[in-house]
């Protein structure tokens, strides 16, 4: 099993959610710690760049503030000093029947995702409903970023969205021994990004819903927009209908509200994270609106805010 920062994996090892025979630390790979490029050419982030470095990296903040913001909203400061951007993309799906100690899980009865054969959230379900909990994946996907994976069969670059699967257990389709080595973010080229995160507290907590937005305008109207949500399914959930709806429209309050309505439709929070899931479902719309509003106002003056 591979480990980068270990901020998510180590607690899970202590709770016996994984039982690998061997851990392979990636931290010695110095070349995966670099950020290269700029807003004009696009940026390449080594997988071991820490979330704190990403959040504070001036070229990155300038190029894709929404991505940097998302990195800066992950967990808490000491964990962002260790947790990596690669780790956050690959972060294990979460469920409050699963992210518990061995003894607790044994007591309630083991679940599908580890040691058991039923889903405790949806007992009739043949699949696992653990939640995708990456803060950075939504913006990266919305941006059309790519990741490079290196394995015994060589190197391949693919869209960030490609490896994710809508399955709480097999949420990431990497080939055996494949390592995510870098994330490539496209040139800024007028693209605006934003991320809105929902959590109970202002720090430490994982997202219980999140919305990442990337969009480009011609000065008046949206040329294209992509919206991706975190915390509402077993994978980062895209909302293509909302993106299509936005194309060609001015970002007025009404348009934003209508797009958010569309975006929230595919979101399916279940009762396996903090706070009530019906409420979380309602909040998705608000989060998408917030993200769109923030993306719209990144550049003062051009876009309609009526």
């Amino acid at each position: 099993m591979l480990v980068a920062g270990g901020t998510d994996l180590y607690p899970k090892l202590k709770r016996r959610q994984f039982d690998p025979d061997t851990l392979i630390g990636l931290s010695g790979l110095e070349e995966l710690r670099r950020v290269t490029g700029d807003a004009r050419s696009g940026l390449r982030l080594g997988a071991l760049v820490t979330l704190a470095e990403a959040a504070e990296h001036s070229a990155l903040v300038q190029a894709h503030p929404g991505y940097a913001e998302a990195a800066g909203l992950v967990s808490s400061p000491p964990l962002r000093n260790v947790g990596t951007i690669g780790g956050n993309l690959c972060v294990d799906t979460r469920c409050n029947y699963y992210d518990m100690t061995y003894e607790w899980r044994e007591s309630v009865g083991f679940c599908l995702k580890k040691d058991g054969d039923i889903c405790l959230v949806a007992p009739g379900s043949p699949r696992c409903w653990a939640i995708s909990s990456s803060d950075t994946a939504p913006v990266a996907i919305a941006l059309g970023a790519t990741v490079t994976l290196v394995g015994p069969e060589g190197e391949r670059e693919l869209p960030v969205s490609a490896p994710y699967r809508d399955d709480g257990i097999e949420y990431l389709a990497k080939r055996p021994f494949e390592v995510l080595v870098s994330l490539r973010l496209p040139p800024t080229d007028g693209v605006r990004t934003a991320y809105a995160k929902l959590r109970r507290r202002g720090s430490i907590d994982f997202p219980i819903a999140g919305a990442g937005v990337a969009l480009k305008t011609d000065g008046h109207c949206v040329e294209w927009a992509r919206l991706v949500m975190s915390g509402v399914g077993s994978h980062p959930v895209e909302a293509p209908a909302a993106g299509e709806f936005l194309a060609g429209k001015q970002l007025t309050a009404e348009v934003i509200a209508a797009a958010a309505e569309l975006a929230a439709k595919p979101a399916k929070p279940l009762d396996n994270a903090d706070l009530n899931h019906f409420w979380r479902k309602r909040m998705v719309r608000v989060l998408v609106e917030q993200a769109l509003e923030r993306a719209a106002t990144q550049d003062q003056g051009v876009l309609g805010r009526g």
Binding site: G6, T7, Y10, P11, K14, R15, G25, S27, A52, S76, P77, P78, L79, N81, V82, I204
Partner: peptide
């Protein structure tokens, strides 16, 4: 907590706060 949830085991690694309950000395 020894699970990275409370911050009580914070130490500085090269001047930056990190949680010692989630660090392996071999790394």
């Amino acid at each position: 907590c020894e699970l990275g949830e409370c911050g009580t085991c914070t130490v500085l690694v090269d001047g930056r706060p990190q949680l010692s309950c989630l660090l392996l000395p071999i790394q």
